[in-house]
C-alpha cells in the first residue's frame, strides 16, 4: 500500500492491521487443528502396527503414549518372514514398474504424433482419446477377463500390466501431447533442416525437453498402479497378487488380523510415501496438467 493511501486512511489501516493480526491467529489455530485431524489417521495406523495383536485387542493405539513398553517391531518381523507378503510385495513392483515404463513410452510416441505430425483424422482421433479419459474401467472387466482367459494370461502379471497400460494411455497421451505442443516449433524446424528424421527429433529433441512432463506422468502412473486393488483383485491369482490384494484378504477378521492389516497397510504405503515426498512437485504437475482420470 502506498504512503499516500496509508496517510489518508491511517485510522482504517490501523484497525485493519489489528483485525488482520487477530485474523491470522485464528487462521493459524484453525489450520493447526485441521492438520492434526489429517495426521491422526496415519499416525494411528503407524502406532497400531507397532503393537501386538493382544495389545490391539484390549486397548487403543493412544495408550502407547502412557505405556511405551508396548512398542515392538514384531509385526514387521512376522510380515517380512511371511512368504505371501514378501511375494506380493515383489509382485507389486513387477506390476507397477513395467506398467509405468510402457505407459510412458507408448504415451510419448503417440503424444508426439498428435502434437507435431499431420495425418488425416488427427483431430477426431484426439477427441476419441479425450473421450476415453473418463471411461470407467468397469466396462472392460468382463470382456477382458474372458479374452485373457482365452489367451491364457488370466491370473498372470502380464495380464494386469496389459490392462493398466491400456487404461493409462488416454491420460498419458493427453498429458504429453499438451506438453509437447508447447515446445517451440523453431527447435524442431532447426533439427529438420539439419536432416533429422522424426525418430531422431523424437529421441534428441522431444524426450529431453519433455523430461519434466514425462517425470510427472511416470510418478502419477506408478502411484496409480501401485495402489490399485480392483484390477488386481480380478486379474491376479494367489501367485501373482500384489500387496493390496494380499492385505484385503485379511479383512474378514479385522480384530484378530490387525497385526497383519496395520503393518501390511503401512508397508504398502512406504514406497508411495517416499515417491510422494521426493517427487511431489511432479505429482502435482501431473494432476494440474489434466486430471480427468
Amino acid at each position: 500500500m502506498s504512503g499516500a493511501a496509508t496517510h489518508v486512511r491511517g485510522k482504517k489501516t490501523l484497525a485493519r492491521t489489528i483485525l488482520g493480526f487477530v485474523d491470522k491467529g485464528v487462521v493459524n489455530a484453525v489450520l493447526v487443528i485441521v492438520a492434526i485431524f489429517w495426521l491422526v489417521p496415519t499416525l494411528g495406523l503407524f502406532l497400531s502396527s507397532l503393537r501386538t495383536v493382544g495389545d490391539s485387542a484390549s486397548s487403543g493405539w493412544w495408550t502407547i503414549f502412557t505405556t511405551p513398553a508396548q512398542l515392538t517391531i514384531e509385526n514387521y518381523a512376522n510380515l517380512l518372514a511371511n512368504p505371501t507378503i514378501t511375494g506380493s510385495f515383489w509382485n507389486t513392483i513387477l506390476i507397477a514398474v513395467p506398467t509405468t515404463i510402457f505407459v510412458v513410452i507408448f504415451g510419448a510416441l503417440a503424444g508426439y504424433a498428435f502434437a507435431w505430425l499431420t495425418f488425416p483424422g488427427r483431430d477426431w482421433l484426439l477427441i476419441v482419446v479425450i473421450v476415453l479419459l473418463a471411461v470407467p474401467l468397469q466396462v472392460a472387466l468382463i470382456p477382458l477377463a474372458r479374452m485373457f482367459g482365452t489367451l491364457g494370461i488370466f491370473g498372470s502379471i502380464f495380464g494386469v500390466i496389459l490392462f493398466h497400460v491400456a487404461f493409462g494411455l488416454p491420460f498419458a497421451i493427453f498429458l504429453l501431447r499438451n506438453f509437447f505442443t508447447q515446445i517451440p516449433a523453431e527447435l524442431l524446424e532447426a533439427a529438420r533442416i539439419d536432416g533429422a528424421s522424426d525418430w531422431r527429433i523424437f529421441v534428441q529433441v522431444i524426450l529431453p525437453l519433455g523430461g519434466p512432463a514425462i517425470a510427472s506422468l511416470a510418478i502419477f502412473q506408478f502411484l496409480w498402479t501401485w495402489n490399485d486393488m480392483l484390477v488386481a483383485l480380478i486379474f491376479t491369482d494367489s501367485g501373482s497378487q500384489p500387496l493390496t490384494v494380499a492385505i484385503q484378504s485379511q479383512l474378514r477378521q479385522f480384530g484378530s488380523n490387525i497385526d497383519v492389516l496395520s503393518a501390511g497397510a503401512f508397508l504398502s504405503m512406504i514406497v508411495p510415501l517416499i515417491v510422494f515426498f521426493a517427487f511431489q512437485r511432479f505429482f502435482v504437475q501431473a494432476l494440474l496438467a489434466g486430471s480427468q482420470k
Binding site: T42, L45, S56, N227, M229, Q280
Partner: peptide
C-alpha cells in the same frame, strides 16, 4: 493435507475401519 492422495484406498480403508471401531477402548 495432500499426503493421503499418495496412499492406496485400501490402506486408507484399513485406517478408517480401525478409527471408527465401536469399542471406545479401541476406536479413537
Amino acid at each position: 493435507i495432500f499426503m493421503p492422495m499418495a496412499i492406496s484406498m485400501l490402506a486408507a480403508g484399513v485406517i478408517f475401519r480401525g478409527m471408527f471401531q465401536e469399542s471406545p477402548n479401541l476406536g479413537v
